[in-house]
C-alpha cells in the first residue's frame, strides 16, 4: 500500500486520468452538480491537459488540475450559460423550516448538501469547491480564479453561510 515513487517527470494525460481520475471527476461533479455535465467537463479538462502538459511546472499537481477544470467550467458557463440542476437556496419550496436542534447541519442528508452546493451561485461555488473539495490553498484559488486572495476569503465565507442558510432555513 505504498505510493509509487514521486518523480518530477511530466506525467502523461493517461497518468493523470489513472491517478487523479476520481479527484477530477469529483471536482467536476461538484462544479456542475450532475453527471452529464461532469462527464463533459472531465473530458474537456483531460483534452486540455493532454494539449497543455508541456506547460506544467512540477508542484501541486491536483491544484493545477483543479485550476484547469475550473477554467474549462467557467468558459462553458460563459459560453452556454449552463446552470446546475440544483435548487437555489432561496427557493421557498426547498428551504427547510428551521429545526429546534442547533446542529441541524450535522444531521442533514448528504443529498441535501450536494444540492445546496450545486445551487450556490457560480462565484461562491467555485471558491468553496476549490477549497473544500479540491483542497486548494487560498493563494492557489486566487490564481485559479484570477481574483485577489481577499476576495477568495470572502467568497468562501459567504458561500458557507449560504450553504448553512439553505440547510437550516436560517437567513444569516
Amino acid at each position: 500500500m505504498s505510493l509509487p515513487p514521486v518523480t518530477d517527470a511530466i506525467p502523461t494525460w493517461e497518468d493523470v486520468a489513472r491517478t487523479h481520475g476520481r479527484f477530477l471527476y469529483t471536482v467536476a461533479y461538484r462544479l456542475t452538480g450532475n453527471d452529464d455535465d461532469a462527464q463533459d467537463l472531465v473530458q474537456d479538462t483531460l483534452l486540455r491537459v493532454r494539449r497543455g502538459l508541456a506547460g506544467y511546472q512540477p508542484g501541486n499537481f491536483e491544484a493545477w488540475l483543479a485550476r484547469i477544470c475550473t477554467n474549462v467550467f467557467l468558459d462553458d458557463v460563459r459560453r452556454r450559460r449552463r446552470r446546475p440542476v440544483g435548487f437555489l437556496p432561496d427557493d421557498p419550496d426547498r428551504v427547510m423550516t428551521p429545526a429546534p436542534a442547533a446542529d441541524e447541519a450535522s444531521t442533514m442528508l448528504p443529498r441535501d448538501l450536494e444540492l445546496a452546493v450545486a445551487g450556490l451561485p457560480d462565484e461562491f461555488r467555485t471558491a468553496v469547491v476549490l477549497c473544500d473539495v479540491a483542497g486548494l490553498s487560498y493563494e492557489d484559488i486566487a490564481i485559479a480564479l484570477g481574483i485577489p486572495v481577499g476576495t477568495v476569503r470572502s467568497r468562501i465565507h459567504r458561500g458557507r453561510k449560504i450553504l448553512r442558510a439553505a440547510l437550516t432555513g436560517m437567513p444569516r
Partner: peptide, 24 residues
C-alpha cells in the same frame, strides 16, 4: 460554519461510471 465546512469536505467522492471512463 465549521460543521458546514466539515460536511462539504466529507461528501463522498464521485467516480463516474466505468462506461464513461472507457469512452472518455
Amino acid at each position: 460554519l465549521a460543521r458546514v465546512r466539515q460536511r462539504v469536505r466529507t461528501l463522498p467522492m464521485r467516480s463516474g461510471t466505468p462506461a464513461f471512463w472507457l469512452r472518455v
